[in-house]
Simulated scan of single mutants.
Amino acid sequence: MSPESQASEALPSRRRRTPRGGRHRGDESFLLPHGSPVLVLAVPGTARGAGGVPEELARLVELEHTGQPTLVGYLEGDEGNLGALLATLDQQRPDEPGAVVVPLVTGPEHETEQAIRKIVAAAPIRAVAAEPLGPHPLIAEALHDRLADAGLARADRIRMMTMVTAAGGVIVVTPGDAFAVRQAEVSSVLLASRLASPVFTARVDDQAGVQAAAAQLRGSGVQRLAVAPQLIGFEPDARYITAAAEAAGAEHAAPLGAHTALARLAALRYAEALSAALSG
């Protein structure tokens, strides 16, 4: 078999699922051929602090997109530790990665990415670290859904757009540094387009920044504010969500949790990382 055909066989094939009604119609999935590298979701923190959400997302990735088991590894603690997990995996094919590790974070987080790359480099098998889930338009979709779930936005399930919003303005709060906030502005712009309402971005643990965003929104005439957390929910910074909403004098949506859009992104980041590794 030629190197080109080997690479083609190793890459996930793309299939279009049968269209479904509602907000999630038109999903795309990735079928992994036998012997493909294992997809591992890398989770910041410990298994106890994650509350089972990563495992729910792993099942969504399996059922909706890959057709093969998705594993979960944690960066801290002994239970489900990422390094220990990678040490148990076999190298199926010596000429390609044995695992692709997808950071289960919604945007760039330098410390998390550095920790993952260090663990991947020390693994006894050849492993590849993928990019974080965001920025990506699917993050805006997930934020929109959580706002709708909280009664803070109304979703038109036929046109997949929001026609009327319960909140007149939204503050997207995200973990990370100033660079992460700038990256999260991609979600904010797309969310504003979906809601036809102004959307600002702030760091979730920066109460002064959240208050400044709230003041700008109220200065433009917005009466009711909503905070949309761009967090999956188990990140250490998730504890600041309620404080951010209080600082803004706003209601808040739930974290993204085990959302189908995040499962789609995990499969996409896997496919991108594997493609780059095989062609590099």
Rank of each mutant, 00 (worst) to 15 (best):
Y240D: 15
S8V: 10
R218N: 11
A213M: 14
S13A: 12
I241S: 13
D206C: 01
A129H: 03
Q114P: 00
Q223F: 00
H259M: 01
L31M: 08
P19G: 02
G83I: 07
V53M: 09
A192I: 11
A214F: 06
P124T: 10
A238H: 09
T260I: 14
D206N: 12
G35L: 09
A226Q: 13
E56D: 14
A248D: 13
A130W: 03
E235Q: 10
P229Q: 10
A140M: 07
R23G: 06
S13C: 04
L57V: 13
A226C: 14
R16E: 12
G67Y: 09
G107C: 12
A202Y: 09
P69Q: 10
T112F: 09
E76K: 03
S279E: 14
L262C: 01
D145K: 04
E28Q: 13
P103G: 07
G107E: 12
A202E: 05
A87H: 11
G176H: 01
S220H: 12
L274H: 09
A271Q: 11
I119A: 10
V105G: 05
P175D: 02
L143V: 08
I139E: 06
R15H: 06
E96A: 15
T18N: 03
V172N: 02
R159P: 00
H24S: 13
S193H: 14
A184I: 04
A253S: 11
A245W: 06
G134W: 08
V40G: 03
G83R: 08
S220K: 10
Q68C: 08
R59K: 15
P198A: 08
D145F: 07
T66M: 10
G73H: 10
R159K: 06
S187M: 03
D145N: 01
P97N: 07
A245H: 14
Y270C: 03
S29Y: 00
P108L: 14
R269G: 00
E56V: 06
A140N: 06
V189G: 02
L133N: 02
A121C: 02
L195V: 13
S36K: 07
P236K: 01
G73S: 03
A10K: 09
Q207P: 00
I232Y: 12
A166I: 14
E64Y: 10
L190M: 03
G98W: 07
L71E: 15
E55A: 15
A150N: 02
Q223K: 14
Q114T: 11
I232G: 07
D206Q: 06
E141S: 12
G26H: 08
D156C: 11
Q91I: 08
G134L: 12
R224E: 15
R126S: 12
R264V: 06
L262R: 01
A277N: 05
E109K: 04
T106Q: 04
L274P: 14
I241V: 15
H259I: 00
A121G: 04
Q183H: 03
A130C: 07
